[in-house]
Each structure stands twice: as C-alpha cells, then as structure tokens.
Simulated scan of single mutants.
Amino acid sequence: MTKKGIVLVNLGSPDSTSVKDVRKYLNEFLMDERVIDMPYILRMLLVRGIIVPFRAPKSAEAYRSIWWKEGSPLIVLSKQLQAAVQQNFSAPVEIAMRYGNPSPKDAYDKLMRQVPGLEEVIMLPLYPHYAMSSYETAVVYMEEVHKKFNYPFRLTTIAPYYNNPDYIHALAESIKPYLQQDFDKLLFSYHGIPERHIYKGDITGSHCLKVNDCCHVASPAHQKCYRHQTFVTTELTTAALGLSHQRVEQSFQSRLGRDPWLTPYTAKRLEELPKEGVKKLLVACPAFVSDCLETLEEIAEEGKEIFLHAGGESFTMIPCLNIHPLWVQAVTKWIKEPVSTASVAL
C-alpha cells in the first residue's frame, strides 16, 4: 500500500479581527498576481498604498461581526471538515490555507511527521469551480511549496467538481429543506471575478465572452472557464431540485474596483428583485463550500439589509455545505478514488 496523506486546501483567514492581522492577511491576498493581475510595482502601489490602508479597518469590523468564539468561521469549519473526513481514513488528514495559517508547509511537515516514508499527498482544493484567483492559485502555491522544500512525496490534485454528481447531489440536498418554506425565488450567488480573468483563462483565445452565448456553446475553453462552470452548477442543481427556471436566478458578488466584473451583480439584483415582485428570497452560495466572510457578512448581513430595505419581506441565506454528511461522503469518495473524479457533462 502506498503511504499516503491528505490535505484539504481552503482560502484562508486573518489570525484575528485586529486591524494589524487583517492588514497582513489582505496584503498577502491582494498581492497575489492571480488575484490582482497587474505588474508587481503597480500592484504594490495599488494594494499597499490605496486598497489595504482604507480597507483593513472596514474589513476588521466586518470580520468582528461574524467571528465565532472558536475563531474564524472558515478556519473552524475547515477543521470540522478535516475531523469528519479523518474518521473515514487511517491516513492523516491536514488542512492548509492559500493565505494565512496553517500554511502549506505546516500541512506538509505534519504529514511527514505522521507518515515516515510518505509517498503521496492527495490534495483537494475546496473550490468547486476553476478560477485563476481561487482554484488555480491554491494549486500552484501548493506545488511551489512542494518544489521549494524538495518534499519526497508526489502530489495528486483532485480536479474541479462543479458538475460532479456527488457535489451536485450534496448541494441540492443541503438546499432542499429550505424549499419547504414559502419563497418566490432562489438566487445562486457566486463569487465574482473580473471579466479579464475569463479572457486570460480561455485556452482557445477566441471563445469566452466572444462567441454568442459562449457558456452554452461547447468549447475546450470551458475546462478553465469559471463563468461556464457556475452556469453548469446552477442548471444541474436546479434540475436536481425540480425547480422551474422562473424560480431560479444567478448572480455574482464581491466586486472590487471599477473594471468590468461578471454580471449581474448580486448587490444590484438584491435591490431590484423586490420591485419585480420577488418578496421572499432564498440565497445559496455554491462557489463556497465553507461559510466565511463572503457568505456570513456580505450575504447574510449586508445582502439581507439591501433586500429588505428595497421592499423585500423575507430573506434566508442557505448555509454552505460545511460538514453536511453528503459533502463529507463526497470528499471521502474522491480521496479514496482520486482518478475517478471525472464529471458528467451538462
């Protein structure tokens, strides 16, 4: 038997809600060339000179509004998933964060100590969809650390699972109980990315955002197209729930800066929906598998306030998969059969 270890990779979080720790985290996050993709000097001037000094105090306040007594929700939930998955394996399971702690080196070193002669580490990025600012940067960073410290084991990376039947089933079942309440529409709110990231990820150079209805026209570009993959997740989940398309909508959140990002924008739709007769709203956030600042504060607090202020009557944010039994089951299956994560086509 191959001597194995497992690492679950998530986005990350500040170590605390202090402005100092949030500033440190934002600097690391926003200086990532796959997040703000501009030349280093320009990126440094923008991030350290403009964005972080103004954003850190506001972000620290936002983190304080959702922080749990055990710590950062994202870190706490990642550890809970780690513990749940560990129950199904004799091989050790660790977590690593793309930004902040625990680092990839922390995770690798722990696995090395626990498994003398470690031969393989199976890495599961906790991002269902491929985007250069999420899945890609996490995988590349884990590989860079692996190479830099010359670890002897090989890395096996589980592919994006946006249309994997196990993921869709877990997502649909996590949403289903909330459909028992009276609602007008279910909004799938995905993390947004700049349109330029879509162009950069187009391996054909001629399809994404150039071909009419590009996300629904078959193309090799789709293997790295975040926009296409979110549409697939929405459509497959809608079908699994047996909902009509009239009761479902999709939008994108977390816009930063003035450049064009994927539309429609969640905040704008939350303001418009009540005027269109949508008074009772459910919101799911499939781009996140662990609740975090972007779900607990941006959607459950800010989003709710926008919607109700615009005339909405009820607003429910559906929790992320977190440690839903079917999600734990799916992760366990993929780790046991990492070469069997091929997804079904829409």
Rank of each mutant, 00 (worst) to 15 (best):
I323E: 11
Q180E: 15
V339M: 13
R48M: 11
V22F: 09
G242H: 09
A330D: 03
T332N: 12
Q181E: 15
N101E: 12
A345H: 13
E305S: 08
S340N: 14
G12W: 06
H207N: 09
S72R: 02
S72F: 01
A159T: 09
V283K: 08
Y178G: 03
I51G: 03
S90N: 11
V211T: 14
V76T: 14
E297D: 12
D202H: 05
P264M: 08
P274S: 00
E272G: 00
Y127A: 04
L26E: 04
I122L: 10
T156R: 15
E302M: 11
D32G: 10
I41D: 04
A330V: 04
I193R: 03
I203D: 03
Y190C: 07
L30N: 07
I193Q: 04
T156H: 14
A138P: 01
K210D: 02
M132R: 14
Y40K: 10
V85Q: 01
M132E: 14
G117C: 07
Q82R: 14
G303N: 01
E28Q: 13
V85R: 02
K176T: 10
D32A: 11
G242T: 12
Q87C: 08
S13T: 15
N212L: 12
Q114S: 14
K275D: 12
D109M: 13
Y226Q: 01
V344S: 11
I50T: 02
E276R: 14
L42F: 10
Y167E: 01
L171Q: 10
A267M: 09
M123T: 15
S18T: 15
N101R: 10
C285S: 13
E119M: 11
A221D: 00
T332L: 02
A138L: 12
R258E: 00
H245S: 09
P152H: 11
Y99W: 06
V47T: 09
K185I: 04
F315W: 02
W334F: 00
L296N: 05
T17D: 05
Q80S: 10
H216Q: 09
V35I: 15
D15M: 06
L124H: 00
S219E: 05
D106N: 15
I306D: 06
P128K: 09
W68V: 00
S16V: 03
R196K: 12
G100A: 05
R43S: 12
D21P: 02
K69N: 03
T263K: 14
G277N: 08
H207T: 10
I306K: 15
R258M: 05
W67C: 04
Y167Q: 01
A310Y: 08
P260C: 02
L256T: 03
N10C: 04
D259F: 11
A267G: 04
L209C: 03
T2K: 11
T17N: 05
I168H: 07
R23D: 11
F252W: 11
T233W: 06
L281A: 06
L270Y: 09
D109A: 12
H191W: 10
P286K: 01
Y178L: 04
K176S: 14
N88D: 11
C320D: 13
L77G: 01
